[in-house]
Design a protein around this nucleic acid. Structure first.
Lengths: 225, 225
DNA sequence: TTCGTTTATGTCACTTTGACATTAACCCAT
DNA sequence: ATGGGTTAATGTCAAAGTGACATAAACGAA
């Protein structure tokens, strides 16, 4: 039976300065030297796939303890997707709050947040398709789960949570209706005793992620009648 | 960089005699000789993953031209999941109408439809977990897509389509409300000119799959408030 | 023609959503 | 201390969607 290299590639998304951004590295080695790519690397001999994802995350971005959500996205295995030979890539999707990127990882590649909209046509391998699948997965998961909270530092305000939806979906949402929805759906968010104190305006109540893994009924994207 | 074997495993589901069934083979070779398993096999050197899925489908079940829906389900790569060594399995989910299973495939394993409820504790490797993930994927896809039509021979009646939902979800649905929902959701199903003619009762109108890939609003499972 | 069976449609109360307005709570400048 | 600016939270109402129940239509068979 044939054997092949297996890699993990990471689609790491965050909301930053009002834009949906991905964590992108610059490749130092061929192939595609100098161009942009998703973080990733080969799975080791006796390593679980998810463990490989966390290891590459730490090695390439310096993030040791990941505070967000991780799930498997899909596997990409076209025979010619990597010029080095047959490489099957298992992609993982990570949703994170706006993290400061630690110093470049151990293999010295520079990692940084880049707006997804700026990445069209600039990624190596088939990473643009993988990224696109990841973004679409994130968009639809916001409808049926409370994973939008994974983009927020905890605790967060309802306005911050709403901005996550607005940025990821690229739409504007009615603040009143959004507030009603997230507070009336059981398990979406949990209230805390705290409130914000900032320069202007009425203080906002702070919330944490709720226990529900799925929203019933869901919070659907507008304008897809 | 380490290399490893890559396999495809197939979760093939249908609705048959009022039960959700999976296409299961009996293993003739070790490991797990004689026990039940999902169809599958190793990906060849220069073969696309999806092509491998279709090839194994033909080889192990004799189905040359698959009439249903195929999508990638997930990848299972625990280092010890196969006693033969490191094997990463890419699972595919197939939804099919109630097909007659052709003669046993070229490698002479016997294939047949088995109710999913009867499979608990009987599958080799980690196939029970894979099957379980596939069933859950199918259940949730019925909410947001018109993939239930992939379980029906075309053309089909609304009652047949409703039975698909009832069997896959394990619930009873109100025939009137279901009829209203599927006929009023644009792109769910397309009417044809034909009608059924059977022994008793008013003839039913026949429909084909609609063009919509997603349902808006979705058809949610009852009882998950 | 009548009965049994199955499909299709009608109705209505309740829930959820979308769109718009008002009140509440805080900071700051005067 | 007071009023204005700013942001958060809640109120209202019509439209759309859903759940539950009843009735009519179209066939085959007796």
């Amino acid at each position: 039976m044939p054997t092949m290299a297996v890699a993990v590639d990471l689609v790491i998304l965050t909301v930053r300065d009002g834009a949906l951004c991905a964590l992108i590295i610059e490749r130092l080695l061929p192939p595609h030297e100098g161009s942009r790519a998703l973080p990733g690397g080969f799975v080791l001999e006796d390593e679980d796939l998810e463990a490989a994802a966390y290891r590459e995350l730490a090695e390439e971005t310096g993030i040791e303890k990941f505070p967000g959500h991780l799930e498997q996205l899909g596997t990409y295995g076209k025979p010619d997707r990597d010029p080095r030979g047959r490489v099957v890539a298992v992609a993982y999707l990570l949703l994170a709050p706006d993290l400061p990127i630690p110093k470049a990882g151990s293999d010295a590649r520079h990692a940084g947040w880049i707006p997804v909209a700026d990445l069209a046509g600039t990624l190596a391998f088939d990473h643009e398709a993988i990224l696109s699948d990841g973004v679409e997965r994130a968009r639809s998961k916001l409808e049926y789960t409370n994973l939008a909270t994974a983009f927020c530092q905890s605790p967060f305000t309802i306005a911050q949570l709403r901005q996550v939806y607005e940025v990821v979906w690229g739409v504007e949402l009615d603040p009143r209706n959004f507030h009603r929805k997230v507070t009336s759906t059981p398990g979406f968010i949990e209230p805390t005793e705290e409130r914000t104190s900032h320069r202007a305006g009425r203080p906002a109540q702070l919330f944490r992620t709720g226990a529900a893994e799925s929203l019933h009924p869901p919070l659907l994207r507008p304008g897809r009648a």
